[in-house]
Design a binder for these strands. Structure first.
Lengths: 170, 170
DNA sequence: CAGAACTTTTGACCTAAATCAAATAATTAC
DNA sequence: GTAATTATTTGATTTAGGTCAAAAGTTCTG
């Protein structure tokens, strides 16, 4: 790792259930997970709706809030004990300013992220509850069994009961 | 407009129904719409599924294909007579290389695009067919009435019959 | 380790939207 | 301008998944 980068990232630890980002604050740090699982969620009608989960070797922040430095609806919490590194948005901007190849890399990797989003939209629109669950298992093959049923159900946009029944058969 | 930019963009016209991008080719041009509507869609089980629509003042390409220079599943066509400008991916990269503020602008505006994607995912997951249609009308307030019912239905992930009934009442 | 507090499962019933089928209506092409 | 396509509407029926309710499992906590 470049010294310029390593100089700016610091380790951090979250206990199970600990809040990583409150939606009432602006997302100013980006976390790189080393161990554990973080969940990005929002509140709808008093219920927590999981937007996505992030595991080892992934960067996590509240994208819109982080990039535009304003509040958004997303909370982030740790669904198990998690070890991560973090970098401040200011330091990241410094790196982008001084290392154009980093900016380029960030822009290119957006293509992949777009692809994931579009795939997910398709998965949500045209598949049965069971197919959604199978797709979820594929996408999160390394961590899906560590995520509580209720959180998975809200991620899939189905009820807990339906997910429980899907798991029961087969 | 910067001369460096205007020198690299050219006007183009598409007739109603004309194919703008074939999924068998790589998306090498990005179009900026001046008049008309382009539709991005893919084929599933022999049927055309609309992914989104783009109107005046919007840039259109097949994101993953364009950014990573490889094939993706998306076709683009004109659902009405359309006037646009286009820029080649090579020219865009040239501009990004030589005008860092353009690269920065592109990166920042990704935040907005992310926001739209996440909003759409929420809209799909937790709303009834009727609410989806209302949301669609809001998102596409300037052009929704010019898009054929069947295309809207596939965009929303509901059947034509259901959409027709939703429109009938109220 | 016992009670409290969640989480998951199971059952009965209901409803929104899909499917199938056919009739109109609107475009397009000759 | 009329036939031929193509798009939209309407009706009858089915079904996947939601809702409500309660039981059974788990996991926290003092």
């Amino acid at each position: 790792m470049k010294p310029e980068l390593s100089k700016r990232i610091k380790p951090i630890v979250f206990q199970k259930g600990e809040l990583v980002l409150d939606a009432n604050n602006i997302s100013k740090k980006s976390y790189f997970i080393n161990k554990g699982i973080l969940r990005t969620y929002f509140i709808k009608d008093g219920k927590e709706i999981s937007e996505y989960f992030s595991g080892i070797d992934e960067w996590v922040n509240s994208p819109k809030s982080f990039m535009q430095r304003k509040k958004d609806i997303y909370y982030i919490d740790a669904i198990e004990y998690t070890e991560a590194y973090f970098i401040n948005v200011n330091d990241l901007v410094y790196l982008f300013d001084n290392y154009p190849e980093m900016e380029r890399y960030a822009r290119l990797s957006m293509g992949t992220v777009f692809g994931h989003f579009m795939e997910r939209i398709t998965s949500i629109r045209f598949t049965s509850a069971k197919e959604k669950y199978i797709h979820f298992q594929k996408i999160y093959s390394k961590i899906y069994h560590r995520i509580p049923l209720g959180m998975v159900a809200s991620y899939l946009g189905i009820t807990q009961e339906t997910l429980s029944r899907i798991r029961a058969k087969k």
